Simulated scan of single mutants.
Amino acid sequence: MTTDSIIPVFDGHNDALLRLHLSSEPEPEKRFIKGETVGHIDLPRARKGGLAGGLCAIYVPSPSRELDANGDYPTPSHADALATTLAMASLLARIARKSEGSLRICRTADDIRAAMQAGVFASVFHIEGAEAIGSDLDELYVLHQAGLRTLGPVWSRPNIFAYGVPFRFPSSPDIGGGLTDRGKALIRACNELKIMVDLSHMNEQGFWDIAAISDAPLVASHSNVHALCPHSRNITDKQLDAIRDTGGLVGLNFGVSFFREDGLKNPDTALEGLVRHVDYIVDRIGIDHVALGSDFDGTTIPAAMRDAGDLQLLVAALRNASYDDAALRKICHENWISVLERSWAN
């Protein structure tokens, strides 16, 4: 594959920061910049696969993998979540500082365009699960000044803002309550600060509560089609329609258990399964409302696409399904840049 044939990808979700943060190996910044043999993303593999940038998530793991009596993962304390969030934000800043211009933290759509044009990895500071933010929202304002531009109020567990949708298959996403009063205040503050609100990991009631409050496009950064894979994490037809009506989008999750009809975590799964989800969204709500949200370093992806270096294999599968270059540019990066620009507009 020649460089000229590569369609650059701006991706809606990766967990590389968590992988690096949890690693016992030294010099995580250097390993990300120079390359390594574990995980899905580093700068050399990003260049090889045409991964031009994306939302780099900060996610604080649950203190235990044991489910509680309600079937939920335990929620980290505010103090632990804040400490871990700051550590990963610092890690991203150090990578940018030490990369000699190879990675840039972007705060505007023009920043993303400029970085992509220069061949620089365009990173956006994203938080997945707002446990680091207290009820007075003080941390939100400080983190915004530090570069935070997108935020998911919950991961798949409850916190003071909302009830995150548990991982269940087969299941409707209609599980648990919606936004708390603090959650409603958080959404209004995100709108005020022009922080994009991410609906992935939100249950159905929370989705509709946000839809009723927010004046920004509705975006699910790394979710798939519930009609094709009835996982609780996926988006229903009614939700897809609401996303279209606000000018939002869905970023397709590469996790096999979120796009296989049987929900199995089986890496021996063809990329054409992801193409089916793209086709469904395009047919229902239009090509302007679908993008990619890989979940690299955070999920089990098809073995045929080992890591970010193989990303153009998915682009080729889409091309084989009759998507032309103009359509591929929309799916791969233009739709993300458009929705971020409109979400961040003054």
Rank of each mutant, 00 (worst) to 15 (best):
V197F: 03
G35Y: 06
R233I: 01
C229E: 03
R19G: 08
E36C: 14
S156H: 09
A132Y: 09
A326Y: 08
K98G: 00
K184E: 12
A321H: 15
H231M: 07
P44S: 08
P8K: 12
M305G: 12
P76N: 00
H289W: 07
S99W: 00
L86R: 02
I58C: 09
L271W: 13
H126Y: 02
R31W: 02
S77W: 10
D4T: 15
G129E: 03
L179T: 12
Y141G: 10
T75G: 00
S257Q: 08
D209E: 10
D295H: 05
D111C: 10
H333R: 13
P166L: 06
A304V: 15
M305K: 07
Q145H: 09
A189Q: 15
E334R: 15
A115S: 13
A87S: 11
A317W: 12
S223M: 14
V9T: 07
E261C: 05
W155P: 02
G119P: 12
F169Y: 12
R94C: 04
A317F: 08
R276D: 13
G177D: 05
H226P: 03
G12W: 07
G206T: 14
P166C: 09
G129I: 06
V38Q: 08
L314T: 03
E66T: 15
L314D: 06
L314N: 08
L140T: 11
R260A: 03
A87I: 11
D307P: 13
I6V: 15
E341W: 01
R276S: 15
D297M: 08
T3G: 11
S171T: 09
P63Y: 06
G206W: 09
A212P: 06
G12H: 06
L186T: 14
A220F: 02
L86I: 03
G164R: 05
N266E: 04
L92W: 05
G248M: 03
V278F: 05
G39E: 05
L328Y: 02
S214C: 11
A317M: 09
R107G: 12
G119F: 12
R45L: 04
I331Q: 04
L252T: 12
P63K: 13
Y73C: 05
D15Y: 04
V282D: 05
L311V: 12
F258T: 14
R319M: 10
R97M: 06
A242P: 09
R107V: 13
K30G: 02
A321Q: 14
A109F: 03
D325G: 00
G134D: 01
M1T: 01
P302C: 02
S172P: 08
N335M: 07
F161N: 07
A79T: 15
L318C: 14
A130C: 08
H231P: 07
L318V: 15
D198T: 11
I7N: 04
